[in-house]
Amino acid sequence: MLKRTIYDEEHEIFRRTVRKWAEVEVFPYAEQWRAEGCVSREVWRKAGEQGFLCMYADEKYGGLGLDDFRYDMILAEEINPREPGFFIALHNRIVGPYLQKLGTEEQRARFMPGVVSGECVLAVAMTEPGTGSDLGGVTTRAVDMGDHWVLNGSKTYISNGLLAGLVVVAARTGEGHEIGLFLVEDGMEGFVRGRNLKKLGLQSQDTAELFFDDVKVPKANVLGDPAKGFKTMMMNLAEERIMGALGFVARAEHAFNITMEYIQERRAFGRPIGTFQNSRFKMASIRTEIDAAWALTDHCVREHLRGELSAEMASEAKLFTSEVEGRVVDECLQLHGGAGYMEEYEISRLYADARISRIYAGTSEIMREIIGRGLGLDERKRN
């Protein structure tokens, strides 16, 4: 097993704190949340009480003023494998940075206290029914009315869509890539949430449709330049993909661990199935793939901490780790035999949860396109 060297002692102390907290406040409720199709608002507030939400926020907003990406990595590694529907990484490292980096002092003062406490859950609305991974194809439109903007359109597959108290909405404001980011608050007239979408996996994660019908958005709720939101979204995608990669490898690691336990206890022909050559060879290959995935991910994290992570390298990590997760959970389910097909066994849920990893935060096909263009293989440059 790969010895990871990316963490210091204070990180490991934090890990033990997170693990102990999650054993009491998260994992015992996982089955209930899956049945209800949504995690509780209470777990968000309890995470806030522990200081786990947007730790980089200034102390005057209730934050820790601690901008070390590795603490959020630990949250993902400890919570995601056993309760992947609690999208704390989305709140902390995907949406929160928009407010932290782009927000005005007035916007941070207005929203950050609730974001840090867990009273205000965050979501980001980019994907539309007809656009998928193509953010340049956004059709939701915002029109400048002088003292406010009017927002019209719809979004789909929005994680935290039902619980969110604040949604960062991407909307077209002009021609080409002129896109703005707008802070839409719960309760704004014309802002309507659709159904909680039924999914193959991630049953406890609220994923919703959002509709905007002449929503009046104050000028005070515009994030940054209303014509340059596309560039901002592109800049934040590298971190999103690294956060995804961490969760993918952590789930693969968890699948490996529960399978090791299973094959040492389950017997066939008078001996543990783990002692058969096929089991040994399969687990050896799985261990190798997971260690390679950790090594690539940690390399990307080091690059990110130095501010040097490229879009291409982040895409490589997202592509490789999501594909590894898919292969690992499939092999691990097979080693469980018939039991693996039963929902009561955790490996069955891991198998269903893993399928989305090759789709969200950019599909495997889009990742290959980004990597290929980075190699100079861009069809647009042929002429």
Results as ranks from 00 to 15, higher is better:
residue 1 M to I: 13
residue 4 R to S: 04
residue 4 R to I: 15
residue 4 R to H: 03
residue 5 T to H: 07
residue 9 E to M: 11
residue 10 E to H: 12
residue 10 E to T: 05
residue 11 H to Q: 11
residue 12 E to I: 01
residue 13 I to A: 11
residue 13 I to K: 13
residue 18 V to Y: 04
residue 18 V to S: 06
residue 19 R to K: 10
residue 20 K to C: 12
residue 21 W to T: 02
residue 25 E to G: 09
residue 29 Y to C: 03
residue 34 R to E: 10
residue 35 A to F: 14
residue 41 R to I: 13
residue 42 E to D: 06
residue 43 V to A: 14
residue 43 V to Y: 01
residue 43 V to T: 14
residue 44 W to L: 05
residue 44 W to R: 00
residue 46 K to P: 02
residue 49 E to Q: 04
residue 51 G to V: 10
residue 53 L to K: 09
residue 53 L to Q: 09
residue 57 A to C: 01
residue 69 F to S: 08
residue 69 F to R: 08
residue 69 F to Q: 00
residue 70 R to G: 05
residue 71 Y to K: 09
residue 71 Y to G: 05
residue 75 L to P: 02
residue 77 E to I: 06
residue 82 R to S: 10
residue 83 E to Q: 04
residue 84 P to K: 14
residue 86 F to R: 11
residue 87 F to L: 12
residue 90 L to E: 00
residue 92 N to Q: 01
residue 94 I to T: 11
residue 95 V to Y: 08
residue 99 L to E: 04
residue 105 E to H: 04
residue 106 E to P: 00
residue 112 M to F: 06
residue 114 G to F: 04
residue 115 V to W: 14
residue 115 V to R: 10
residue 119 E to Y: 08
residue 123 A to L: 01
residue 131 T to W: 14
residue 132 G to N: 05
residue 134 D to A: 06
residue 135 L to R: 07
residue 139 T to V: 05
residue 139 T to W: 01
residue 141 R to G: 08
residue 142 A to D: 01
residue 142 A to Q: 05
residue 146 G to V: 00
residue 147 D to H: 14
residue 150 V to K: 09
residue 153 G to K: 01
residue 154 S to D: 07
residue 154 S to M: 13
residue 156 T to I: 13
residue 158 I to D: 10
residue 164 A to D: 02
residue 167 V to H: 00
residue 168 V to W: 02
residue 168 V to E: 05
residue 169 V to L: 14
residue 169 V to Y: 12
residue 169 V to G: 09
residue 171 A to P: 07
residue 175 E to L: 09
residue 179 I to E: 04
residue 182 F to H: 04
residue 190 G to W: 13
residue 197 L to S: 12
residue 199 K to Y: 11
residue 204 S to E: 02
residue 209 E to V: 11
residue 209 E to M: 06
residue 213 D to S: 02
residue 214 D to F: 01
residue 215 V to E: 06
residue 222 V to N: 15
residue 223 L to Q: 01
residue 224 G to M: 15
residue 227 A to Y: 07
residue 230 F to I: 13
residue 237 L to K: 14
residue 241 R to A: 03
residue 243 M to D: 13
residue 248 F to H: 05
residue 250 A to V: 06
residue 254 H to G: 11
residue 257 N to T: 04
residue 260 M to N: 06
residue 261 E to A: 14
residue 262 Y to K: 09
residue 270 G to W: 02
residue 272 P to I: 00
residue 274 G to M: 04
residue 280 R to N: 13
residue 280 R to S: 08
residue 281 F to P: 05
residue 284 A to G: 13
residue 285 S to R: 09
residue 289 E to R: 12
residue 291 D to E: 08
residue 294 W to Y: 03
residue 298 D to L: 01
residue 298 D to M: 03
residue 301 V to N: 14
residue 301 V to T: 04
residue 303 E to M: 11
residue 304 H to E: 15
residue 304 H to N: 09
residue 305 L to H: 08
residue 306 R to N: 11
residue 308 E to H: 15
residue 312 E to W: 04
residue 313 M to I: 08
residue 314 A to G: 15
residue 318 K to E: 15
residue 323 E to P: 00
residue 327 R to F: 00
residue 331 E to T: 10
residue 334 Q to C: 05
residue 339 A to G: 03
residue 341 Y to A: 13
residue 342 M to Y: 02
residue 346 E to S: 08
residue 346 E to T: 03
residue 347 I to Y: 02
residue 349 R to M: 10
residue 350 L to H: 15
residue 352 A to H: 10
residue 352 A to T: 14
residue 353 D to K: 06
residue 353 D to Y: 06
residue 355 R to D: 08
residue 377 L to G: 07
residue 380 R to P: 13
residue 380 R to H: 07
